[in-house]
Simulated assay, not measured.
Amino acid sequence: MVDQRRLAVWGDPIAHSKSPALHAAAYTVLGLDWEYGRRQVTGDAFADELGSLDESWLGLSLTMPLKEHAFRAAATHDRHAEMTGAMNTLLLGEELAGFNTDVGGIIDALAERSITEVRTARILGAGATAASALVAVAEIGAIRVDVRARRPERAAGLVELGTRLGIDVQVAPLDDAAEAVDITVATLPSGTVLAEESAARLAHGGGALFDAAYAPWPSALATTWGDGVVVSGLGMLLHQAVRQIRIFLNGDPAHVLPDEPAVIAAMRAALDHPSS
């Protein structure tokens, strides 16, 4: 039997991904002789690329636009993947097992900043990351969520997800007036710049800001947030990767790694001091 130890992150675009540095740092601490690369894969090419992998491949990390494609390809899904209809982790083997570690990554990143409970939230955006954000805030206590999207009709799935989660989800355009909330979660594409008035309106009474974007940082939205707590998407990137490595090593995103604090420290150092 081939020793499965090849992994990679797939997406389009992918050259900017910090995942190879994160995973390499973790594997060094864990003493694993695993190879983790990156590959540019479009949605149209995903099925063929997946079918071309041999037994040396252990798993994949998936970023946009592949999260929904991977969900459809997987034979099994963990609870967070099932809730969101999207996944960012694929464990290869006799059957494809899919996981969504973005939800846990958001929760862990917020907990690092002592944000462990909220009642109200606002989510900016309506894509796959927004669905993960909705589940994350629900799991830390949110009962009302205000979704803001450039095309509100795209948020119908979030309303349905809110119903399943037992929380009230209201949808409005980005520019509408906003009620005060405990936290704002921005899932807009990296580099998004909102109109100055819109950004100021969202910042006023917007609570803490978690911005899934991290390149460039600070994001345009983060610079408008004044003295409020601002959490970079790098925290989510780090902690979703920790959960991925748990899956690749143990098959379980909740199974803590050996000497996990040292693993996380090495991964954080790789983000703070990239080699390239």
Rank of each mutant, 00 (worst) to 15 (best):
L7E: 02
A8W: 09
D12W: 02
S17W: 11
S19I: 00
A24H: 13
T28E: 15
V29K: 11
V29D: 04
L30N: 06
L30K: 05
W34D: 05
G37V: 02
G43D: 07
L50N: 09
L50K: 11
G51L: 06
E55S: 14
L60R: 04
T63Y: 00
F71K: 07
A73C: 01
H77C: 06
T84K: 03
T84N: 04
F99A: 01
N100W: 06
G105M: 02
D108I: 08
S114N: 15
I115A: 06
V118C: 11
R119L: 12
R119Y: 08
I123G: 12
S132T: 11
S132I: 01
A133Q: 08
R144Y: 11
D146E: 13
A149W: 00
R150N: 11
P152L: 06
P152W: 10
A156K: 13
T163C: 10
V171H: 11
L174H: 04
D175H: 15
A180G: 07
D182N: 03
V185A: 05
P189D: 12
P189K: 09
S190Q: 15
S190T: 12
S190Y: 03
L194A: 03
G206N: 06
G206I: 06
A222L: 12
D227V: 09
L249V: 15
L249H: 13
V256L: 12
V263A: 02
R268C: 08
S276A: 14
